[in-house]
Amino acid sequence: MISEFKEFVSRGNVVDLAVAVVIGAAFGKIVTALVDGIVMPLIGWMSGGVSVSDWKYVISPAQLDAAGKEVAVEVAVKYGQFFQTVIDFVLIAFVIFLFLKAYNRIHKRAEEAPPATPEDVLLLREIRDSLKK
Rank of each mutant, 00 (worst) to 15 (best):
L122H: 08
I43M: 05
E4V: 03
L100V: 15
V52K: 00
V75Y: 08
Y103K: 10
S60I: 10
F82N: 11
L98V: 13
D88G: 12
A67Y: 07
I87F: 00
T117G: 12
G44D: 01
Q84G: 12
E126N: 09
G44T: 00
Y103D: 07
G68N: 02
F94E: 12
V21L: 13
A72K: 09
W45R: 09
S130H: 05
A102S: 14
K132D: 05
A93S: 13
V90S: 11
E111H: 08
V58S: 06
E74M: 07
V35R: 00
V58Y: 01
Y79S: 07
F5M: 06
A102Y: 15
G37Y: 00
G80V: 01
L64M: 08
I92L: 11
P61F: 00
R125P: 15
Y79L: 04
I96P: 13
I127G: 04
L34M: 11
V121M: 04
L124W: 14
A93V: 15
G44E: 01
F82C: 04
K132G: 12
V75S: 12
I96C: 11
V14E: 00
E70M: 10
T117Q: 10
I2M: 04
I92M: 09
W55S: 02
Q84K: 13
F83I: 05
A72V: 15
V58W: 01
D65L: 03
A113P: 06
V73F: 08
R105S: 09
I59Y: 04
V95L: 11
S47Q: 00
E4I: 02
K101T: 10
G49S: 00
L64G: 05
